[in-house]
Write a protein that binds this DNA or RNA. Structure first.
Lengths: 152, 152
DNA sequence: ACAATCTTCGCAAGCAAATTGCGCCGAAGT
DNA sequence: ACTTCGGCGCAATTTGCTTGCGAAGATTGT
């Protein structure tokens, strides 16, 4: 899909505020409400806009700390990986999970209240997944930047 | 702030669909529209709901690949870190940046069209930031899970 | 145990915003 | 120069948001 300048302005605005009123959005991008809304619907149908979500403040719901954990599996065959992926999908504390090229086999991003809660999670859930050989956790001490806004 | 069961249902729903109509949300959580909207506003004012955003499909805007890069700095003094943070903040391709405890000094998450585009970005931008001594990139080959939904 | 108070609900009316159809204008192609 | 097509703006309709108010249930203090 081809995105012109107005489309990009719409996407930038909706990435900042996904609940912005269409009238305000229209004014910001230099259109009247109707063609503006039409473009938004087209962007949704084309899948450029995947979904709208509410972002919660992790600290306010007792999930203030993020942890990155690199994982090494005992083997890299399909069964081992499938099983690992299925188990990880069940854990709501795991927000992201990637299979990796190179050094480690997988990487997960976990949220928890603090490092003690995380250690418990790691030993009781992550390490117990069949096929997991070793894990190494990287702990952020400070967040410099955290956004979901794609560059356009 | 204390969250009862209805609040949690509201948060779960809005994390799935941040643009859900209040009428539908009310029906889903078992309230009429007015108290439901009141609760949503309270959750927003309390900062539990931080913001609403549109999530774009990275592949559809030429940012289909994610890269995790661990960074080692030449020094860990405040000036070096401040400067690094300021430079990273300017780079829209960097969606996340954390200072780390332990092994590396910082970790960034970068989006790019593909690995070639990323390599260019790394050598032209990341590595040129003053104070950056070494970088090591972890490349996801497959995304198993990727969500912004906090466990409640 | 009873009364006062506080909280949170549902209802209903008024209001604002989203949505749709239609005519118009400009760009591109013949 | 004429035709066609795409995209805009206007206006009417519908839909959903918003707010004030009275009632019901829970809680606290006497």
């Amino acid at each position: 899909m081809k995105l012109d300048d107005i489309d990009k302005r719409i996407l930038r605005a909706l990435q900042r505020d996904g609940r912005m009123a269409n009238n305000d959005l229209a004014r910001e991008v230099g259109l009247t409400p109707s063609p503006c809304l039409r473009r938004v619907k087209l962007l949704e149908e084309a899948g450029v806009i995947d979904r709208y979500v509410a972002m919660l403040n992790p600290a306010k719901i007792g999930k203030g700390q993020t942890f990155f954990t690199r994982i090494w599996l005992k083997a890299q065959d399909e069964d081992t990986i499938e099983h690992f992926a299925a188990e990880v999908a069940k854990l709501p504390e795991v927000l992201e999970c990637y299979l990796m090229l190179g050094d480690c086999d997988a990487m997960v991003r976990v949220v928890a209240a603090n490092i003690d809660a995380y250690r418990r999670f790691q030993s009781e859930h992550l390490s117990r997944i069949k096929g997991v050989q070793n894990v190494k956790t990287d702990v952020p001490s400070q967040t410099i930047k955290q956004t979901s806004e794609m560059p356009l």
